[in-house]
């Protein structure tokens, strides 16, 4: 679980970095998209690295979702009679929202892939073969931006607990200071990633990034 989660984190970090290229304008962004596909040539075939990454992501997804499902099921079976009254005193909302946050993310990813990779759906009906334009068209649509922003909130929460949790699962948080640091890192990663991703849609909607 922790390993797959960390692979996701590595991916979203670099993905976010890529997205921010949108601020550099049409060409820089498209060059980057192209670069993604051609990198490693001629050692690797075209899109070779991309497929490697995709395979790793897909594998992680399977592991991650499988583990999540097992944990969910075990937790459900561990307490079949619910409390009439239960108060949570120490846990973060993020930690308790992991499962629903995960489901949200899964739905988001499905849509996201349809949107940008697999289906290339342009809700404004414009061209789909130009990544930069597809992006700007998408986020010009207010409700799509809202969907993305909601997903980013889910992602941020998932990461806020996920980073800390992964550290704990890996057995790295053996004292008070380490635990404090892991939690702080969780907040940092969450803010940077969710915040970073959110910039592009917001700025597109606000008309700062345009075709």
């Amino acid at each position: 679980m922790a390993v797959s989660g960390l692979i996701f984190i590595a991916f979203v970090l670099s993905h976010m970095y890529g997205n921010l290229k949108a601020f550099s304008g049409h060409d820089a962004y498209n060059t980057y998209a192209e670069h993604l596909r051609s990198v490693g040539e001629p050692v690797l075939p075209r899109e070779g690295l991309l497929w490697l990454i995709r395979a790793a992501l897909l594998g992680s997804l399977v592991v991650h979702v499988y583990c999540a499902a097992v944990l969910w099921r075990r937790a459900a079976k561990a307490r079949t009679t619910k409390y009439v009254m239960k108060r949570n005193v120490a846990s973060t909302l993020s930690s308790r929202m992991m499962r629903w946050g995960g489901v949200t993310l899964l739905l988001f990813i499905v849509w996201h892939l349809l949107n940008f990779t697999v289906g290339k759906i342009n809700v404004e009906g414009g061209a789909t073969n130009d990544p930069y334009n597809l992006l700007v068209d998408s986020f010009d649509t207010w409700w799509l931006t809202v969907i993305y922003l909601i997903a980013m909130v889910a992602l941020g929460m998932h990461l806020r607990h996920g980073v800390w949790s992964a550290a704990q699962t890996l057995g790295l948080t053996n004292n008070v200071a380490a635990r404090r640091n892991a939690n702080a890192l969780g907040v940092l990663v969450a803010v940077v990633i969710a915040g970073g991703f959110s910039l592009v849609p917001i700025f597109v909607l606000a008309g700062v990034i345009t075709k």
């Binding site: 944990l71 937790a75 079976k77 561990a78 005193v89 846990s91 930690s95 308790r96 607990h161």
Partner: peptide
Amino acid sequence: FGGCTNIGECTA
């Protein structure tokens, strides 16, 4: 027993 997802209610 369920699996731990590091929620932290236990220690509190």
